[in-house]
């Protein structure tokens, strides 16, 4: 039982990191019907932004909460800018082209970031600085909860709550929903579609950056290809929840994190990565629209 609870906590903390990345996939899909393959690499870039910022600013050598927060926000800002740039210069010129062109471009941007990263940062793994010292917060029997797990869950949930608020309660958020429903009709409302799409990329990339820093803290080995598999799993989580749905992405990601942790705990860590694709196959067979997905039908 105690073991199970431990896995449960680990799974939720892993799942909430997946969630931050999955949200970016689902938002961009919702608004452009594009699977943004470069999104996992934006997450990777965040760990390197964090790595270098921490060194330059000296936080890498003196752990502190303030320092960690500054690095978090700097990395989020840098990735927001990166996401904005990718959309502005790689995707926007192709928006009126067939969707396949956009998809191939996304793969191209992904390859550029992965290989560019290998050139710039080197292909060898680096160790993310210890911005905060790991400590055991409390222990109940054999269950141990570290400050990292609490930080991950609290930070992720706060950002998710903030995002929910933006999407459902602000004018810009409602405009995002309107644009994702119908571009032309949204523009007839006076909504500047380009700005809303930019905003979506900025938001999604900033959240992926938050995930990157949290991962850097908890699993400090970083390398330029770390976004590939992680991004793929976050994408599967978004499909699992119903791509296009933000609450769906969060639930899908929690399921993904929990199942991964349980598989590692009770079967074998060999199956850790296979699980994501097993889940993908099952969801595509049973409910292709995902848990929260709506089958699209329009009243005429």
């Amino acid at each position: 039982m105690e073991e199970f609870v431990q896995h449960l906590i680990n799974g939720i903390s892993l799942g909430s990191i997946y969630g931050l990345v999955a949200i970016g996939y689902t938002m961009v899909y919702g608004i452009l019907k594009l699977i943004n393959f470069a999104h996992g690499d934006v997450y990777m870039m965040s760990t390197f932004f964090g790595f270098y910022f921490a060194r330059w600013l000296g936080f890498a050598y003196t752990p502190s909460v303030i320092g960690a927060l500054i690095i978090l926000f700097l990395a989020m800002a840098a990735c927001a800018l990166l996401g904005f740039t990718i959309e502005r210069f790689a995707y926007r010129p192709l928006r009126k082209m067939p969707r396949l062109n956009l998809l191939i471009t996304a793969i191209g941007v992904s390859l550029l970031l992965e290989n560019g990263g290998q050139i710039l940062f080197g292909a060898d793994p680096k160790f993310f600085p210890e911005l905060i010292q790991r400590a055991e917060l409390f222990r109940i029997g054999d269950i141990s909860i570290s400050n990292f797990q609490v930080i991950i869950i609290v930070v992720s949930l706060s950002f998710m709550a903030l995002l929910q608020y933006i999407i459902f309660h602000t004018k810009t958020g409602k405009a995002m929903q309107a644009v994702s429903f119908h571009h032309e009709n949204a523009s007839l409302m006076g909504i500047d579609i380009d700005r809303i799409i930019s905003f979506t990329f900025v938001l999604g990339s900033a959240l992926a950056a938050a995930a990157g820093i949290l991962v850097g803290l908890a699993y400090p080995r970083i390398d330029p290809l770390m976004g590939v598999l992680f991004g793929l799993k976050a994408f599967v989580a978004a499909v699992l929840g119903g791509i296009g749905s933000v609450p769906g992405a969060i639930v899908g990601a929690l399921i993904m994190g929990l199942s991964e942790e349980m598989v590692v705990g009770y079967f074998s860590s060999t199956y850790r990565d296979a699980l994501a694709f097993f889940l993908l196959i099952v969801i595509l067979l049973v409910k292709p629209t995902g848990l929260f997905g709506k089958s699209t039908s329009e009243k005429v």
Binding site: Q177, A178, H182, N185, L188, I191
Partner: peptide, 21 residues
């Protein structure tokens, strides 16, 4: 617009709010 073009995923009130964007 033709075919009504409402935002089916938003509430009636939010649709009106979008009109005043």
């Amino acid at each position: 617009p033709e075919g009504r073009g409402i935002f089916a995923n938003l509430s009636t009130e939010d649709n009106l709010e979008m009109g005043a964007y």
